[in-house]
Amino acid sequence: MIVARTRWSARLVMAALSLCLIGSGMVHASASASSTPNTVLEAVPYQSPFALAVDSHGVVYIVCPRPR
């Protein structure tokens, strides 16, 4: 098991990536009861992440299996 720490700083680059993902239909914004559409901003590849947390500094902690 690995606990990875990452800062989501390259938002512009990743926003472009997420648009690609949205276009491919892998992850997409969905209709909601609100008049404001929901948006998936970013999608970063990690192998089978299954738990995560974020601290008060915006650091995201990701738990994923150790690569075989």
């Binding site: 989501w8 990743m14 997420s18 892998m26 992850v27 909601s32 609100s34 404001t36 559409p37 929901n38 948006t39 998936v40 901003l41 970013e42 999608a43 970063v44 590849p45 990690y46 192998q47 089978s48 992440p49 299954f50 738990a51 995560l52 974020v54 995201v60 990701i62």
Partner: peptide, 19 residues
């Protein structure tokens, strides 16, 4: 900002909820 472990797709997703 919301972060989601999308395990089966091998990625972490950041989503922006509606305001």
């Amino acid at each position: 900002a919301v972060y989601i472990a999308d395990s089966g797709n091998d990625r972490v997703v950041e989503a922006l909820p509606p305001h």
